[in-house]
Computed example of a mutant assay.
Amino acid sequence: MGCDGGTIPKRHELVKGPKKVEKVDKNAALAARWKYCALSTEKLRRPIVTCDLGRLYNKDAVIEFLLDKSADRPNSEVVSHLRGIKDIKELNLTDNPAWEGERRNTKGDRYEDMHCAMFICPVVGLEMNGKHRFCFLRTCGCVFSDRALKEVKTEICHKCGDPFKEDDLVVLNGTKEEVEKLRKIMEEKRAKAKATKKSKKSKFAEAVSKPSESKENPDSTETVFAEGKTSTENDEDRSQPAVPGPSGSSSSSKVVKPLAASGSLAASGSLAASGSLAESGSKRSIQSMEEKSETYKSLFTSHSSAKRTKAQTSNWVTHTPYHF
């Protein structure tokens, strides 16, 4: 029924017009970006980290995402550019002395200031609530307001004293245009790092292939050692007088030295034939070779395990058990 009692309906009750566009509350939008994690939508708490795009996260939320990327998480597209823990930077923030924490309005009888922030700029004292532009340094992670960096121009961090460049400055929670610019810079850096990594791998492969080629052609090394006599060796040959002795004894010893350095088997044979062992000194024992392992040394009778003590040796030996 309706319209009883002489009620007069109004136009907006009878005619349905277009719906009003809901406007986003600016204070709520700023609080969501500067007081809550962009991934887990929980309140920001130390340690707080950021990425190359300038978004704020809780460190534990990012680590959980990196450990299990397969799980369906809300806002996962926000951190799709993160590949590992190296892509985030922990922020060195300055606490706001006026921040009373979450318990300041438990009874609900006090005015809650939405613009009061947990952190401030250590130079100017501006609160990090979204009304002022803030930046962080990639080198040390310290956070400053843009006004402080413009007023006090320096190439050293105001808080920790580490040097930095203009390229190390990253805007926190910037506009869409600033985020796109930071994304391009991030992609360029990753492409350069990938190219340098490929070049290092190719150089390493070339360095590995060169000694393998030299091992395949040992004759080339022998000729270099045999023919490559220095001027000092020639001078020694001229200065030393001819000593009578077996034919080719002095010349063979000098030719054998470079061949022994190349490690050829023919050179070792000529050394034994010409009697160069007397020249080099006494014979080396296998037990004194440091490059040989203990297991290899134990195969020979000169090892300590093969020797018997006096208690182990007997005074007489029975050649046969039969007595005639």
Rank of each mutant, 00 (worst) to 15 (best):
E233F: 04
T232I: 12
R238W: 01
S231Y: 01
L259G: 04
E233S: 10
G263E: 03
E236G: 06
S239C: 11
V243D: 06
S262F: 02
E233M: 08
V243Y: 08
E227S: 12
D237Y: 12
D235V: 12
S251R: 11
F225M: 06
S251L: 12
G245W: 04
S251T: 09
S250I: 11
G263V: 02
S250E: 13
S249N: 03
V256W: 00
K257W: 01
S220D: 04
A261G: 08
V255W: 00
G248H: 14
N234M: 15
S220E: 08
S249W: 13
G263W: 03
P258E: 06
P218Q: 02
S231V: 11
G245R: 03
D237K: 07
G263Q: 04
L265M: 14
K229M: 12
G228P: 00
G228A: 11
V224N: 13
S239T: 14
P241M: 07
A261R: 07
K257M: 03
V243C: 08
E216T: 12
P244D: 11
D235F: 05
S239V: 15
D219H: 11
N217A: 09
D237M: 10
N234H: 14
T230V: 11
Q240K: 13
V256H: 00
E233C: 07
F225D: 00
S239Q: 11
A260N: 08
S247G: 12
A242L: 12
G248W: 11
N217V: 04
E222C: 15
E236N: 10
